[in-house]
Design a protein around this nucleic acid. Structure first.
Lengths: 330, 330
DNA sequence: GCACCTCGTCTAATCGATTAGATGGATGGA
DNA sequence: TCCATCCATCTAATCGATTAGACGAGGTGC
């Protein structure tokens, strides 16, 4: 708010109007460290309301060294997995009365580092980093600046920054077992471009369980790349009968590629994805997934920012049976 | 950064180390309003580098009344239309050296108002509001606080806040004409829960062009709602032969509902969506859309924040022919 | 040689909110 | 009645960066 002249209303304006000092106004605004007489409190509140006073958080931030803002750096908010995480992080932050700065790094570690620097310059109270891959630890400058940081989904724990992930091992095993229960002996795996961090372990776990004859496919973490891959395989008549996609994003590309190439899903190609995003419920056919507890993960990541002693998650992924694996709809 | 004791490095520390006053350090850091001797500049730069000085933007913000942060309030970042807009807004802001606070309002005007208040309290330099609907103008407090605001996609222009939209009329006409070219005489329209603002006009335009016998459907702006609607219609054998969906999100739900109900698209039901998000390229079947110039819209919205004289957009939507309308893939 | 200007730098006020320390009036106990 | 408390409030320092005004040294013009 501002007065008619355009000057924003300050504490001092309210104090003047209420006939008190700024200290008292501050005490009232914050249920401050000292008590205020009831009558005075009323006067101050009334004055603030009349003037439309809105405290300047910047000034408060300067004094109190906390901005009420946390930065979220993520790979790609258009990927529904990261998009959903972002939503849950925002909600968890709201529970701590924090606002969220967001920055898309587009799967580039360099850009992640840039965003971390910018967010630190903006004096964020904390950083959540949701990377697709786990290369060098991008939170190093945060540690130097003594700003708490957390990796979510994937990231390097080398520097001591905590990492919140679902139980990838169990998810892969469950997906594999389910496809086997549908009668598939050979189950291929569609991985990302590289295997890094705990998420990269998904591939290793599949490899160990599926045997060395199983087919490993790779594509970028995008619908377009997975779509193109499937069309290529279809042209070469090399499409597997069953496939675990490392991410929903890739699985959705598999579905559209299969549709375009006239490959029936699940008849000709059964698919399970490992993420479990909201999008999987409304694909054609609907996508069977091992759904990660995204909300719980986001909540824990945020809680860790404010209390490093937050207890770990059970964080099991849950198999959601839909149609892409061969199950009938419930 | 901070010294070993944990105290963050300030301008004064750098000044002390370089043997100058804080003013000179500031001049160097900003190529300040006054010149500095080359030798001194070197000393200052060296001192800053050695100490790992990172300017405190909060302090700067207090003094200069600009935080370098803009708030984006949007209906739902998981809806790929708004998600894509958010991405483009972020990029446009990066061009202005601004960071982006984001807040999901979940299609609730009340929550939009709350977020506007919080962002204003955080002293944002500007606000971009991307609402699904256009009810009361939620930017009123921004105007009072003299913070520039822009509506993107839809919103009330009653209070003078500018609105950046694509040419909805042309998009609807083009979609309708295209379905007619495929031989459909009756083209239904799947609208949102209510018709507000320029986006609500889409329905009126369709109504005027399609005639009063044409079927109007409504659902929430979600995949689940559109999916459920189509299944219901299928059970009642009341599915139209051709349909324009107001949003991609609804169209995707239509596709999944049609798939589940064994309705061939486009054979039994032809579909065109009016948004044109990246997701439409990888549905089964792929989605024909009138693609709005999302990036140009976001760019213009952001430019308007910093220069109200930014010229208007041509902002035509472009028909992207894919398969859901009956076209063959290119 | 003197007045005057320029350049480089320093001093200190400022942005707005917070809060420790000081102050003064009222209350209670002896 | 006098002193010790206590409560409500005020005064002023503080957070860190910015920048107008002051200042001194060196250079120029006449």
């Amino acid at each position: 708010m501002s007065d008619p002249a355009g000057r924003p209303i300050t504490l001092a304006d309210v104090a003047r109007r209420a006939g008190t000092s700024t200290a008292v106004v501050s005490y009232v605004m914050n249920d401050g460290p000292r008590p205020v007489a009831a009558a005075t409190r009323e006067r101050v509140l009334a004055a603030a309301a009349e003037l439309g006073y809105r405290p300047n958080r910047i000034a408060r931030a300067l004094r109190s060294r906390t901005t009420g803002v946390v930065g979220l750096v993520l790979a790609d908010a258009l990927n529904p997995y990261f998009g959903a995480l972002a939503r849950h992080v925002e909600q968890a932050l709201a529970g701590h009365e924090r606002l969220m700065l967001i920055g898309n790094a587009g799967y580039s570690a360099e850009r992640e580092r840039q965003l971390v620097e910018r967010f630190l310059a903006a004096q964020v109270d904390g950083l959540v980093i949701a990377s697709a891959d786990a290369g060098d630890d991008v939170t190093v400058p945060a540690r130097a600046a003594r700003v708490p940081a957390v990796h979510l989904h994937n990231g390097s724990t080398a520097g001591g920054t905590p990492l919140v992930t679902a139980d990838n091992e169990q998810a892969v095993r469950e997906a594999l077992a389910h496809l086997r229960a549908h009668g598939h002996r050979d189950v291929a795996f569609l991985a990302g471009p590289q295997d890094t961090g705990p998420v990269g372990r998904r591939r290793e776990i599949w490899q160990a369980a599926a045997g060395s004859s199983a087919v490993l496919l790779r594509s970028d973490y995008s619908r377009a790349a997975a779509d193109a891959l499937i069309r290529r395989l279809a042209a070469a008549d090399a499409v597997p009968r069953a496939l675990i996609a490392a991410t929903d994003e890739q699985a959705i590309g598999v579905l559209s590629g299969a549709y375009a190439a006239d490959l029936a899903v699940p008849g000709r190609l059964a698919v399970i994805a490992l993420d479990g995003t909201p999008d999987g419920a409304h694909t054609a056919p609907s996508l069977t997934v091992t759904a990660q507890p995204l909300q719980a993960m986001a909540q824990r990541a945020v809680d860790l920012l404010f209390d490093p002693a937050t207890p770990p998650l059970p964080a099991r992924a849950v198999l959601v049976r839909r149609r892409s694996c061969g199950c009938e709809e419930g």
